[in-house]
């Protein structure tokens, strides 16, 4: 058998090309992207609202203004009740599961697309990078909206409980009261919510994307959801 020119190695694409493809994909799939992003928004909104509510409670407690309206029965010496911790942990779990599920579904329904891209010459790493970019952007924007909605919810709830006092003692920035408890402040909570949403979205999508990218294209294209 005659040997023609040897097969070269596939080249890496510039980052800007990946960015362009992933944004185009988000744009055209707008409706579906919104639903996936909404999953992230809800998870983070829930977490941030519970967390911010707790921060507000702590700040007001610190100021000595909340004793009359504290509805929690098991307030500990440090100010955080076991019920608060329970709520935060639960909301965190709901958030993790919700986002992971949204991203898993969003990637799994695109296995055929991943297989097709590999048929056309995409490297495994390129496919994963596309999904990483898409999910990172979705994660960040979804989480930011969620964090703002969550904060708004907590503020409205706080207004009902504490009235306008809330704004005088609003825990915007981190603080370390004398009793040694650490108050993160609402800004840090929002920031953490955004980071968490983004990380969860990226992990939730890059794992199935990596798995699909590793499959031979024929198998990826056979996968039915």
């Amino acid at each position: 058998m005659q040997q023609r020119t040897p097969i070269q190695e596939q080249i890496d694409l510039p980052f800007v090309e990946s960015l362009r493809i992933s944004f185009q994909s988000l744009k055209i799939r707008f409706g579906r992207s919104i639903i996936t992003t909404a999953g992230i928004t809800l998870g983070i909104a829930f977490l941030v609202s519970v967390w911010t509510n707790n921060e507000i409670g702590l700040a007001l407690q610190e100021s000595g203004r909340q004793s009359a309206i504290n509805t929690f029965e098991e307030t500990t010496e440090k100010g955080i009740s076991t019920k608060d911790i329970w709520l935060i942990v639960m909301s965190l779990i709901v958030c993790v599961v919700g986002i992971a599920n949204s991203m898993l579904m969003a990637v799994t329904e695109r296995f055929r697309e991943i297989g097709t891209m590999k048929c056309l010459g995409a490297l495994d790493g390129f496919v994963v990078r596309l999904f990483l970019l898409e999910s990172g952007f979705q994660g960040f924007s979804g989480a930011l909206i969620g964090a703002l909605i969550g904060t708004l919810g907590a503020v409205l709830l706080g207004l009902k409980d504490y009235g306008l006092d809330l704004f005088f003692y609003f825990p915007l920035l981190p603080a370390q009261p004398e009793d040694g408890t650490m108050q993160l402040g609402v800004i840090v909570v929002i920031l953490l919510g955004c980071i968490l949403g983004m990380i969860l979205a990226v992990i939730g999508s890059s794992f199935p994307a990596w798995r699909a990218a590793k499959l031979p294209p024929a198998e990826a294209m056979r996968t039915e959801v």
Binding site: I7, Q8, E9, Q10, I11, Q24, S25, I28, R29, R112, E113, G115, T116, M117, K118, C119, L120, G121, A122, L123, D124, P217, M221
Partner: peptide, 24 residues
Amino acid sequence: QRQIAAFRCHRVGYIFQSYNLLHV
């Protein structure tokens, strides 16, 4: 892996029963 990707990219053109176009 890189050579296989280059092979699929340059040497072969695929046509499928279900077209396999990217919808986006």
